[in-house]
């Protein structure tokens, strides 16, 4: 079955990204097709590569990046939410005159239309948030 996932909360502050990660892994294990993982609201903070969590804790951002590589996942960060919160890729840095980028490998920034399109194309959209 085609499934998409929306994540509305940032890592560590809230469990929603952990729940979504475990759900996506279980769905992949069962052979389902993850169409897209869409990061919205503070969920865009899952896509920074500049975090350094303690060694004895999970690395939420890295975990998504690794899973994306392993399964060719489409990890999309909402551009409007990212601009508010300072998640920046090369294109955004150039467009908005920023002196750095911080996006994690495997994520990309795109429009809200990607969420609606995922909902239309998927059999299920599962929302994880606060």
């Amino acid at each position: 079955m085609k499934i998409s996932v929306q994540i509305n909360e940032g890592p560590y502050q809230h469990q929603s990204s952990d729940s979504a990660y475990n759900f996506v892994k279980a769905a992949l294990d069962k052979g389902h097709d993850i169409v897209r993982v869409f990061f919205y609201h503070d969920g865009v903070n899952n896509g920074t590569r500049l975090a350094s969590p303690p060694q004895d804790d999970r690395n939420v951002q890295q975990r998504w990046s690794d899973l994306s590589k392993e399964h060719n996942l489409d990890l999309v960060i909402c551009v409007a939410a990212a601009q508010r919160r300072g998640i920046v890729d090369d294109g955004e840095a150039e467009r908005n005159g920023k002196d750095a980028t911080n996006i994690m490998d495997g994520f990309h920034i795109s429009g809200l239309g990607q969420l609606i399109e995922a909902a239309v194309e998927s059999d299920r959209l599962v929302v994880f948030g606060d």
Binding site: N8, Y40, H41, A80, A81, G111, L112, G113, L115, I116, E117, V120
Partner: peptide, 19 residues
């Protein structure tokens, strides 16, 4: 919280999708 504002943005974008 910001949820109301940002969900309104989804609705406006979604309106272009003819659903």
């Amino acid at each position: 919280t910001v949820y109301a504002l940002e969900s309104l943005e989804v609705v406006l974008i979604g309106a272009a999708f003819d659903q």
